[in-house]
Design a protein around this nucleic acid. Structure first.
Lengths: 250, 250
DNA sequence: ATCAGCTATTGATCTACATCAAGGCGCGGG
DNA sequence: CCCGCGCCTTGATGTAGATCAATAGCTGAT
């Protein structure tokens, strides 16, 4: 016996105010069955620096980033912090089947999230198999990204780490924005030196020094505080230590 | 409209020769619909050190570890290696929806895996929603483990890394074996110093030194080459830098 | 018994990054 | 205008862990 289920349209690019957006399950572009999600959907805004949830706190919703950047971090007792997730617009956060957040969720910039209460979300997951399949796909992508990140943390030099981070953000950005055609990439890197250091497992001083080094060598150009131009993406890529072809998976 | 689907029995402990075992989808203990998986199931054995698949190679199966230990690693062009997955018995490997392996899969010890051809597996996933749900759950667990691992790689000292690894293996082992009641844990750590160093983002010399240090301080006792006794688990835990309560999620 | 080939240990030295410390720049408020 | 506060940069110094190197145990082959 073969059944058919309502199809989730994956990666629908232009559904900008959907509750769980194009990299996630898009409820807007869906069958009737999914309409009911709408009634549980709500938006929340945060200012840069604010905490969305603390590790261990109750988190009764799942969400996706609409605008801005959120981070997931772990903190050790003595204060050492490691970022373990970087959420850009369209990324999903929250784990069906868990009561509390395992990580600090923080707004790295001003942030708007689109939230669902977890209960109805879980119920719908049971009724609509394609959601679980879509979510599985997303989670596998995240796992691959985490593993790439592990290579960075475990084996790359400070210089390679910085180059990698800049490339990662540039790619994510480029896949959304229109890229400036002729090899040159322009985008803003909306992370403080401290946030970068938490991402990379470095101190902020080392981040600053290595950024200066890349700047002096012309691999990156900074305009103002956060705006970055990469004159030659391929040249910067060579500094990451990654295989030239190897896929970034985010 | 509410439908019901065949239920997957999760974590069924005593289904030892099931193709995808208790931490995964258990096909043995299932509805008729799942029976057809059996015909695509086959076993493969590897000797310690052998490679199961190379990163980039075609991988037309998914599998679970039956006995032994497998690892997932990434290699940089200049040979630096980082382990990104450690697969103990019952762990699942392979990604539905991808043609090639993203990682080197290697037998750390003699290894038996139970494999499925990917095509029929994927087809069944579409027909049997609970499989995707179960797989999602497993993948989320793995993601949490990966994030714990990122904290280790990014922020822990060599000593903390070693203590953490020993604790992780001990826990995984204890959850399968009968633990030796009175606080004392005995198990074997079936990884070479080199494998440990690839897990931890260290050199094998540093691993060796730190193991010696823990031994001299009586935090661990080694019997023979690979057998390890932890006289006082809680005392070793304190050396990991982790929150005393905080959940290891593997 | 001897030797080759692993794996592990231990020592000596080097270095990339952390740590400590001192400004500098930009921005908003009084 | 000045001051305080975030954020960033840069310098001086310290150190954990890498690197280089020698040796030791263990296993299996001759």
């Amino acid at each position: 016996m073969t059944r058919t289920y309502p199809k989730i349209q994956p990666y629908s690019q232009d559904c900008n105010d959907c509750p769980i957006r194009h990299r996630a399950v898009c409820a807007r572009c869906e069958s009737d069955e999914l309409e009911l999600l709408e009634q549980f959907k709500y938006y929340r805004s945060f200012e840069a620096g604010q905490t969305v949830v603390w590790a261990g706190d109750k988190m009764d919703f799942v969400a996706s980033v609409v605008t801005g950047i959120a981070t997931l971090s772990q903190t050790m007792e003595d204060g050492r912090r490691q970022m373990v997730g970087l959420l850009l617009p369209s990324d999903f956060v929250g784990r069906p089947g868990r009561e509390t957040s395992a990580y600090d969720v923080t707004a790295a910039t001003d942030l708007v999230m689109c939230c669902f209460r977890k209960k109805p979300f879980e119920e719908m997951m049971l009724r609509t198999p394609h959601i679980a399949q879509r979510l599985l796909e997303m989670t596998l992508d995240e796992l691959d990204a985490a593993r790439e990140w592990m290579l960075l943390l475990g084996r790359k030099t400070a210089r390679e780490k910085i180059a990698s981070l800049v490339c990662i953000i540039a790619r994510r950005d480029a896949s959304l924005q229109l890229n400036t055609s002729d090899g040159e990439l322009r985008f803003d890197l909306p992370l403080t030196r401290e946030a970068m250091s938490e991402y990379l497992g470095l101190t902020l001083e080392t981040v600053s020094r290595q950024m200066s080094a890349l700047r002096k060598e012309g691999l990156i150009v900074t305009e103002g505080k956060r705006q970055i131009v990469i004159p030659d993406f391929d040249r910067l890529l060579e500094e990451t230590g990654d295989d030239s072809d190897g896929g970034f998976l985010v």
